[in-house]
């Protein structure tokens, strides 16, 4: 690859990394897995003046389930999530999505936090995080703040980080009671971005009714998008084919896809509907299991 010239540093502590980011300003970018940034540099779509490689910083590769959250640190690779029993035990949507992220080579290197920060509307993780009501833990030299995922995903390749901040952790609340989730992705081949994908998460109350519902869509809007009307239609209802169909139709209305080489808008909307219904069925089965 032949990127434009850039400076490179590989700090061994988070403080040092944050200091460099602050000093270098907006021309600096964090390098974690590099699976989106490096290709963009190759194509000269991104030309950061300074890369801050965080891979030598200890203590950022944790997955844990303490204090009511499933927490994923900045250096956790997609493949660590594929192989994590903690993730499987605590969040069905994340566990379901992990094997569908990119291809095995990318999964070995790319990070969940990097992907969340990247805000590619065709990326998988932000839909999962929207459905699971995630929080992003951002850190800078002036401290730490927690950002709700809905506030974090701003637009096409745009997040709400301030200059000098990095994503230190992404976390999702554990299910309150019984819960399940799924991620259904239609892609042209392994390693392709989603043509259409749908993340779903359901939680059931003591009475068996749906207490919480999350549905979010990939690659059919200018950012990963929650299907809020569909979620609302489900909450408080007894799970049924009819209510899932209704939610599926509402989810399709939340999609504003473009016709392109991957398919027509009409068909993509149809896939949103079909995958929402199937995702809800899978989520329910998991919650009841």
């Amino acid at each position: 690859m032949f990127p434009p010239a850039f400076a490179y540093s590989a700090p061994e502590s988070l403080d040092e990394a944050l200091a460099t980011l602050t000093n270098e300003g907006e021309s600096a970018r964090v390098l974690a897995g590099g699976q989106s940034l490096i290709p963009m540099m190759k194509l000269r779509l991104a030309s950061p003046a300074h890369l801050v490689d965080i891979n030598n910083i200890p203590g950022l590769d944790y997955i844990d389930a303490a204090n009511g959250y499933l927490r994923i640190g900045a250096l956790v690779r997609h493949n660590d999530i594929v192989n994590s029993e903690l993730v499987t035990a605590h969040n069905g949507a994340i566990a379901s999505a992990a094997p569908w992220v990119a291809d095995p080579l990318v999964r070995n290197r790319g990070t969940l936090c990097g992907s969340v920060a990247h805000c590619d509307p065709e990326g998988d993780w932000n839909s999962v995080m929207l459905a699971a009501r995630a929080q992003v833990v951002a850190q800078s030299t002036s401290g730490e703040r927690v950002i709700a995922i809905d506030d974090f995903v701003v637009d096409f390749f745009t997040n709400s980080l301030e200059p000098g901040e990095i994503v230190k952790e992404v976390r999702v609340p554990k299910y309150a009671g019984r819960g399940g989730g799924a991620y259904l992705k239609l892609e042209r081949k392994i390693g392709d971005y989603a043509t259409v994908a749908v993340a779903t998460q359901l939680q059931l109350g003591e009475d068996g009714k749906i207490s919480e519902a999350g549905i979010a869509l990939t690659a059919v809007n200018n950012k990963n998008t929650r299907a809020i009307a569909a979620e609302r239609a489900l909450v408080g209802e007894e799970p049924s084919d009819e209510i899932f169909k209704e939610a599926a139709a509402l989810a399709a209305q939340a999609a504003e896809p473009e016709s392109n080489v991957r398919g027509t808008a009409e068909w993509k909307r149809n896939v949103v509907s079909v995958y929402t219904r199937r995702g809800l069925e899978a989520s329910l089965a998991q919650a009841r299991a």
């Binding site: 290709p39 194509l43 291809d103 042209r188 081949k189 392994i190 390693g191 392709d192 971005y193 080489v261």
Partner: peptide, 15 residues
């Protein structure tokens, strides 16, 4: 349209 391997698809062992 199809100027790199993200757009011009070469199948892997998976598919």
């Amino acid at each position: 349209i199809g100027s790199n391997f993200m757009d011009y698809l070469v199948p892997t062992a998976w598919e």
